[in-house]
């Protein structure tokens, strides 16, 4: 996730202090990983250097952290361009799980147990996320759903692989 673009986007609704920016970010996007204040500071200074934000005002008697930032025209254009550009879909072609399964087969360990263990772990996480969805707000639900759908995809792969373990063993073993 591009933190710079996210902070820029948050600024578009009006000028803010760095501290307010952090708080708003944490509230909306940072459930799992809150932003460090230093991260905000370094990002803002990079944006200032690039002319995407400007200092709107400084609170009297304050340090650098008391600056109020505002977005520039260039900044608005930059946010627009970022939103318009589609994200590159993740190809998932390098899978640790697949590597583990093949290695288990090659070394004569039980690939089935490996898959089952993984499956259980996936489902455990899905349960936790489902439970969080129950108590969370809409933002929470959407974020959890995103994760759940991915986990479900993984699970399907696990099941499919489990069903085809014999053939895979024959191919990698030969």
């Amino acid at each position: 996730m591009s933190i710079g673009h996210t902070l820029l986007g948050l600024l578009e609704s009006g000028p803010r202090h760095g501290y307010d920016l952090k708080r708003e970010f944490d509230e909306k996007f940072g459930h799992d990983r809150p932003l460090h204040y230093g991260q905000v500071y370094s990002t803002m200074s990079r944006l200032l250097k690039n002319g995407l934000v400007e200092v709107d005002g400084i609170e009297s008697g304050g340090g650098p952290e008391r600056k109020r930032y505002a977005i520039t025209e260039a900044g608005i254009t930059d946010v627009g361009a970022w939103l318009a550009q589609p994200e590159k879909p993740e190809p998932y072609l390098q899978s640790t799980l697949y590597t583990k399964v093949v290695l288990a087969l090659l070394t004569g360990r039980s690939a089935e147990t490996l898959l089952d263990t993984q499956r259980t772990e996936h489902l455990r996480l899905m349960r936790i996320l489902t439970d969080r969805k129950r108590t969370g707000d809409l933002a929470d639900q959407l974020i959890c759903d995103h994760a759940l759908f991915h986990l479900e995809a993984d699970l399907r792969w696990l099941e499919l692989t489990a069903a085809r373990l014999d053939r895979l063993a024959a191919e990698v073993g030969a």
Binding site: H122, M126, R127
Partner: peptide, 9 residues
């Protein structure tokens, strides 16, 4: 469906 099963204990 795993997502339905996720509602279970």
């Amino acid at each position: 469906e795993a997502r339905v099963a996720a509602y279970s204990d």
